[in-house]
Design a protein around this nucleic acid. Sequence first.
DNA 1: GTTAGCATGTAAGGAGTTACATGATTTT
DNA 2: AAAATCATGTAACTCCTTACATGCTAAC
Lengths: 189, 189
Amino acid sequence: MVLEFAVLGLLHESPLHGYELKKRLDAVLGRMRAFSYGSLYPCLTKLEQAGYITRDASGGAGRRSKVVYKLTAEGKEHFQGLANEAGPSQWEDDAFGVHFAFFSHTDAETRLRILEGRRSRLEEQREGLRARLTRAREALDAYTLALQNHGLESVDREVRWLNELIAVERTGGLDSRRGPVTNDPHTVS
Amino acid sequence: MVLEFAVLGLLHESPLHGYELKKRLDAVLGRMRAFSYGSLYPCLTKLEQAGYITRDASGGAGRRSKVVYKLTAEGKEHFQGLANEAGPSQWEDDAFGVHFAFFSHTDAETRLRILEGRRSRLEEQREGLRARLTRAREALDAYTLALQNHGLESVDREVRWLNELIAVERTGGLDSRRGPVTNDPHTVS
DNA sequence: GTTAGCATGTAAGGAGTTACATGATTTT
DNA sequence: AAAATCATGTAACTCCTTACATGCTAAC
C-alpha cells in the first residue's frame, strides 16, 4: 500500500508525529496523491500493531499527548524489503512515483529494473494510444482529439525523462551527479 | 461522479451495451482512469433506476440477453446539466479530464470558465511547488528533487496547454479550427 | 474441439474520504 | 479574547476492485 510505504519511508529519515507527517506526505507526494487524517491515523495504528513503528506519547505535563512515531528495527527491515522489490506493482502509476521518491533507499540494480519496467509499461500505453489515434482520428471530436494528443505527449515526455534517468543510473546513479535531471526542452536531445 | 458522467456522455452519442461501453470508456479516459465491470454494471443499474437510461434486452432467440442501454430524455437533460456546471469540482484532477473529453456538449462560456478555473488551480499548485523547491532545495535528496522538478515541469506544461486552449476558445472554440492543439515544443511560443 | 474474446452480472472486501468530536498553542 | 493553526482521533459512508459465477460465439 502506497500510504504505508510512504509513512515508513518518511519515518526512516526521522521520528515524527502525525500532523507533521501529513505535511511531509503532502510535500513528498506533491500532485500525485493526497491523504487525509482519516486514513493517516488508522494507518499509523496499523503499522504500530504490526510492530513496524512505536508510538512515544510524550505527554509533557497536562498536554494532550503529542504522539511521536518512530521506526523499529523490523520496520526498517520491512521498508528496505518493500523498497527493493521490483515487480509490476512498482511501475504502475500510483506506486511508481512513491517508490521513486524513496529511491535513495533502493539499491542501484532495483532502481534500474523499476525504471525500465516503468518505461516499457509507458511504451505499451503509448503504442495503444497511437494506434487508436491513427485508427479513429476522423471519428473523434476536436476536444477528445486534443485530450488524446496531450495525453500522448505526456507519455512521450515521461519516457524521455526515464531515458535520461536510466542513462544516469548506468553511470553511477543520481546521487553521484551534480546537475538536476529535468525534462526541459533545452536539455533533451 | 466521474463514471456516471462518462457513461451518460458516451450514451449521448449512441446506444451501447455494457461491454462495448467499457471499451469506449477505456479509450476516452485513456491513462487518467480505468473502471472495471464490477463498477460499470452497478452504475448502469443505478442510472436506469434514476430514469436516465433504459435497458433494451434484445434477447434474439435463445441468446443470453445482450442489453443495450439508451439515454432517455431526462438522461439527456441531466447530462447537459452536469456538462454545463462550472464549479471547483470541475477543475480538480479527476473530473477535469472527463469533463474536457465531453466539451463538445458544453457551451462556450462554461468551457472557458472551466479552463480558466483549471489553470488557476494549477498555478496555485505550481507556486506551492516552486516555493518548496527554492526553500528546501538543499535538504532534499537527488531523487526527490528530480521527481519534484519533473512534477513542476508537468504543471508548467499543462498550464501552457491550457493557455493555448483558452486563446483558441476566445476566438470561437476548437470545433471551428483545423490544426490540433498540442504541446509540441515547436508550436509553443 | 478448444482457445480467445464477447457478454453480464454479484458478493465480499479494501482503501480512502467526509464529517464530526475534542482540545492545546500561537498569533493578531 | 478571537482566530488561526496545531494536534489526535473515530464512525459512517462512498467508490471501486477482485474474485467468482455463468454462458455465448468466432476463429484456428
